[in-house]
Computed example of a mutant assay.
Amino acid sequence: MMKMTTAAAALLTALLAGPTLAATCNVDIEGSDAMQFNKTSIAVPASCKQFTVKLRHAGKLPKAAMGHNWVLSKAADAQAVANDGIAAGLDKSYVKPGDTRVIAHTKIIGGGESDAVSFDVAKLKAGESYAWFCSFPGHSTIMKGTLALAK
């Protein structure tokens, strides 16, 4: 029987436990010219202080024709936030300035571009339903997903 030193045992334990100890406090999302996101749900670990969403437009069309952003709100507010965003226009990334229902959002990006947004996880509450969507006119009914605070 092989005897393991204390240091070797500690190293082995750390290597095996490492991936389970570190929370992933970011996510990468892609939007396309086909008006689709490559994800439909996000789980935010409660152990994260900040959470970052990195949005990339994998298409080729310019933002004026097929722009995408990522907007987070409570699910109950999503449709109203999207509707109010249309009036804000492209120069404001189709997000109403000062809209307190918006938890976080990226700017509108076009093909080949990317943007990121970080938000305070303390703004999320366990058991609350959150929705994220693209607020470019006409996109929110298709380009959307859910977000939940995970334990």
Rank of each mutant, 00 (worst) to 15 (best):
M1F: 14
M2A: 08
K3D: 14
K3F: 15
A8H: 11
A9E: 11
A9H: 06
A9Q: 08
L12E: 06
A14Q: 02
L16T: 00
T20L: 07
A23K: 06
C25T: 05
C25M: 08
C25H: 06
N26V: 01
V27F: 04
V27C: 02
D28F: 08
G31W: 07
G31S: 14
S32A: 13
D33I: 10
Q36H: 02
T40W: 10
I42T: 12
A46T: 03
S47M: 07
K49Q: 13
K49L: 12
A58L: 13
L61P: 04
L61K: 15
K63P: 06
A65W: 02
G67V: 00
N69C: 03
L72V: 12
S73A: 13
K74P: 01
A75F: 00
A76V: 03
A76M: 00
A78V: 05
D84G: 14
D84F: 06
G85Y: 07
L90Y: 08
D91Y: 10
D91N: 15
K92N: 15
S93G: 08
K96I: 03
D99Q: 07
T100M: 09
V102P: 01
V102N: 00
H105E: 09
H105P: 03
T106W: 05
G112H: 13
G112W: 14
E113N: 05
S114Y: 06
D120R: 14
K123T: 14
K123D: 09
K123Q: 14
L124V: 02
L124P: 00
K125F: 10
A126H: 13
S129T: 10
A131C: 08
A131D: 05
W132F: 15
F133D: 04
C134R: 03
S135A: 15
S135M: 07
G138N: 08
H139R: 10
S140T: 06
I142G: 06
G145M: 00
T146H: 04
A148Y: 00
A148S: 14
L149W: 04
K151A: 08
K151P: 10
